[in-house]
């Protein structure tokens, strides 16, 4: 158990160390910056509540990425699902102002989820049925989704009088309500439910079992009669749906509209969360909270000090860089390297 824990803490420590060195080289006091980040993310009950709420989309994206990783598809295309899901939710919410509150929230969430799932059909078809490389395909599809969303907003959903491309603010009835604590909104509850479902799905669901086996060994799965393509497509669509839901939650809970820059590289943060959390439910949850601190503090830190927002982006990026690092086995790698040298 301690071994597993340390293998997760190693990357976090490494990332912090690397980021602090770079921040120091850029002329800022790294310790001070770190303290500022903690203060603006965890300094007050309101800040903690906001961090938890902001963790929700990350949790969902982490789960979505985890599903694909388990089935052996390196899906980096959730950014696209996130953006299109957010747009779909924001647009739907605009038409829900007259509905009673539960429905007014449910419909946009569903719309986001469906949009994400539908968009994932494109890479799913290309990767599973046409055998294109998963990384390249999902990356390309991401950019297409971003441009498509921009175009859709410009062409159909532009808020009247808005200078940059943004949809109208959504009606208040569709905002995710606070639960129990000011600033802590429903998205946190949604993410906890999804984490629980994911944990059960992994250990008990037949699809969870199937994705695991397919991810480990596709030939074996084929030979023992798994419908490999059905499983891969299901996993990718499920993942797209959850990615879209993440976008919807972000739109209804935090941004309250769709606007250029809606996703601050959330898709890639989701990837990081999944890898830091080793595709396991509790790991994904904790890793999301950690990254949410950085996401939240980015804006706050600029207001209370002269440390620019980019400092938190630097730390985020070093988390991504170090997410998959495993410090165990370092000696073996070093030996391989030496042997190669000793010619």
């Amino acid at each position: 158990m301690t071994g597993r824990l340390s293998s997760h803490l190693g990357p976090i420590a490494g990332a912090l160390l690397a980021a602090m060195v770079v921040i120091g080289l850029c002329g800022f006091n790294p310790f001070e910056s770190l303290i500022l980040i903690f203060r603006s993310a965890l300094g007050s009950p309101a800040a903690i509540a906001q961090t938890c709420s902001s963790a929700a989309p990350l949790v969902l994206l982490g789960l979505a990425t985890g599903i694909c990783f388990r089935s052996g598809v390196f899906n980096v295309g959730l950014e696209g699902c996130f953006v299109l899901g957010g747009l779909a939710a924001a647009v739907t919410a605009g038409h829900c102002s007259t509905l009673p509150a539960p429905l007014a929230i449910l419909f946009p969430l569903l719309a986001g989820s469906v949009a994400g799932s539908l968009w994932m059909l494109v890479p799913a078809w290309l990767v599973v049925f046409r055998n294109l490389d998963d990384v390249v395909t999902t990356l390309m599809v991401n950019f297409v989704a971003l441009d498509l969303a921009a175009w859709l907003v410009e062409r159909f959903f532009l808020a009247p009088g808005s200078a940059n491309s943004a949809t109208a603010m959504i009606p208040a009835v569709t905002h995710l309500p606070d639960v129990g604590f000011p600033g802590l909104n429903l998205s946190f509850i949604i993410s906890i439910i999804c984490v629980a479902f994911y944990a059960a799905w992994c250990s008990r669901g037949t699809l969870g079992y199937e994705t695991r086996i397919v991810g480990w060994n596709r030939r074996f799965a084929r030979a023992t009669g798994f419908g490999v393509r059905r499983i891969l497509v299901s996993a990718m669509l499920l993942s797209g749906g959850i990615g879209g839901l993440a976008g919807a939650v972000h739109a209804l809970g935090t941004v309250h509209q769709y606007v250029t820059g809606f996703s601050a590289e959330y898709g890639f943060l989701g990837l990081t969360v999944a890898i830091l959390g080793d595709n396991r439910a509790p790991g994904i949850f904790l890793a999301s909270l950690l990254l949410a601190m950085l996401v939240v503090s980015g804006i706050g830190i600029q207001l209370i000090s002269d440390v620019p927002e980019e400092v938190t982006r630097l730390i985020e990026a070093s988390f991504i860089i170090f997410a998959s690092v495993r410090f165990t086995g370092f000696g073996r790698r070093l030996r391989n390297w030496r042997e190669g040298n000793a010619r």
Binding site: C26, F268, T272, R313, E316, A317, I320, I321, A323, S324
Partner: peptide, 23 residues
């Protein structure tokens, strides 16, 4: 050296250099 996944690390470097250059 650290056995990181090349794809994730690559994406991380993209974001890192972006933030670094802006900073």
């Amino acid at each position: 050296g650290l056995g990181a996944n090349p794809i994730v690390t690559g994406l991380g470097f993209n974001l890192f250099s972006h933030a670094l250059c802006r900073l």
